[in-house]
């Protein structure tokens, strides 16, 4: 296994718009060891989410390369990248992205069922208990508060035991107290399971809890990543 779980080299993203070509990310480098935690901060429109999408293999860079869990994403088609995500990657989103038609338990079971694990139900229940929702298993997302929904999302993200977890503004939709509890939970699980954590956030306090932090401004890395 390579010592780094995530490597980005000279990563750029250019999109075409009505005004011509627009460069969202300019030649970015990154190297993240196993079990580390990284915060990507920056103002709205600085390119944070774009970077997250590229690192997680949800999108492809215009130039440069991403190596995720030892696999270069360049040259992998969407389905091969999907397989890679299934094996190594977990996600937490600002808007939770729970499936409305599934209750809390079924939402957490989903990645386990995709893997075909026989113990999906028990494991999902365990995880929901771990995030403090042991009594809300049969509630639908609409019946849960924002904080509770995000806890379900975190349980789901950790269910498949990913090597690396990408979180996009995980506390962005929550009040500060709830946000605090969610980040406690994230870091606790990060510690317990040795999962690498990459999060995009506005929240300086959350960023400070990470081992490393990088700042983006208009697609440029302005604070170099130092351990």
């Amino acid at each position: 296994m390579s010592p780094s779980i995530l490597v980005a080299q000279n990563l750029s993203k250019v999109v075409s718009s009505a005004e011509g070509e627009l460069t969202i990310l300019h030649g970015l480098d990154l190297d993240l060891p196993h079990g580390a935690s990284l915060a990507i901060v920056g103002s709205s429109g600085s390119g944070k989410s774009t970077l997250l999408g590229l690192l997680a293999g949800l999108d492809l860079p215009s130039s440069g390369e991403v190596v995720l869990a030892g696999h270069s994403l360049a040259g992998l088609d969407e389905d091969r990248r999907a397989r890679l995500r299934a094996e190594h990657v977990g996600f937490v989103f600002q808007s939770f992205q729970l499936l409305d038609t599934l209750d809390a338990l079924a939402n957490v079971m989903l990645p386990l069922e995709l893997e075909g694990r026989a113990d999906a139900r028990e494991r999902a229940r365990e995880l929901l208990e771990r995030v403090g929702l042991g009594r809300r298993l049969t509630h639908y997302p609409k019946q849960l508060s924002g904080g509770e929904q995000q806890r379900v999302a975190i349980a789901r993200a950790f269910a498949a035991e990913p090597d690396i977890l990408f979180a996009d503004e995980p506390t962005g939709n929550l009040d500060s107290q709830t946000g605090e509890r969610i980040s406690d939970l994230l870091f606790a699980l990060n510690q317990e399971r040795g999962t690498t954590l990459v999060l995009v956030t506005h929240d300086e306090r959350l960023a400070r809890r990470c081992q490393r932090s990088i700042r983006l401004e208009a697609g440029h890395l302005v604070v170099p990543s130092e351990p």
Partner: peptide, 15 residues
């Protein structure tokens, strides 16, 4: 639409 994007995120292939 959202659900299928999520499933793809969770690693399910297009097919």
């Amino acid at each position: 639409l959202d659900a299928s994007a999520l499933l793809r995120c969770l690693g399910l292939s297009r097919h």
